[in-house]
Amino acid sequence: MLEIKGLRAGIETKEILKGIDLVVPDGEVHAIMGPNGSGKSTLSYVLSGREGYEVTAGEATFDGQDLLSIEPEARAALGLFLAFQYPVELPGVNNAVFLRTALNAQRRSRGEPELDAVQFLKLARAEVKRLSMADDMLKRNVNVGFSGGEKKRNEVLQMAILRPKLAILDETDSGLDIDALKIVADGVNALRGPNFSALVITHYQRLLDHIVPDRVHVLSAGRIVRSGGPELAHQLEAEGYASVSEAA
């Protein structure tokens, strides 16, 4: 379970998150919606431990463990996964090697046995097939020369292989056509279950037609100004952020 209390954070002297309170229980999918500049990406980076963000107040715990004081790789080993809005290209790094290194690093830190190349490839190929990705996806360098849709699918592939307990999807829908969107959503939905929760950060309601959230939160100017059920997303789509924020 993810618990965020009174979280304030920003870059240098600029405060972007101005007191976030949020609980995502195990097994639930929560959506965070909000206009540009409301702090959606900052929240995902602060939770996953990117350098350059300063937390000035509050806390964030995952299954009772303080997240903010540990390294990004330790957060990943706890089961946290960030699907990047802009997945990073790694020239010279083979996608399969990258995925196996990541998976084995996580398994090692959890005291589980590592997978050898054969075991890993079997697992990875099955997921590639399930996500309707091209066979050569594993052989290519990480995200190099991938189209926008392929990059997002590669994020979902990583998620499917790493099997996180909590996934943060940072505008995973941006730049996706409707077919790719469906594949990505199916990939997330396949992971849903009592031991998986997700924080779906999005600008539009479109993705939430495919990944139906348990709760929707509206982020505005660094605060959650409104929370509700899935119907809130539809209301936002119909009336815009301004009306919802004002109503709060």
Partner: peptide, 12 residues
């Protein structure tokens, strides 16, 4: 790139 790798659990 460094953060991307670490966010996937690869130690620094």
């Amino acid at each position: 790139q460094y953060f991307y790798l670490r966010s996937r659990g690869v130690p620094a």
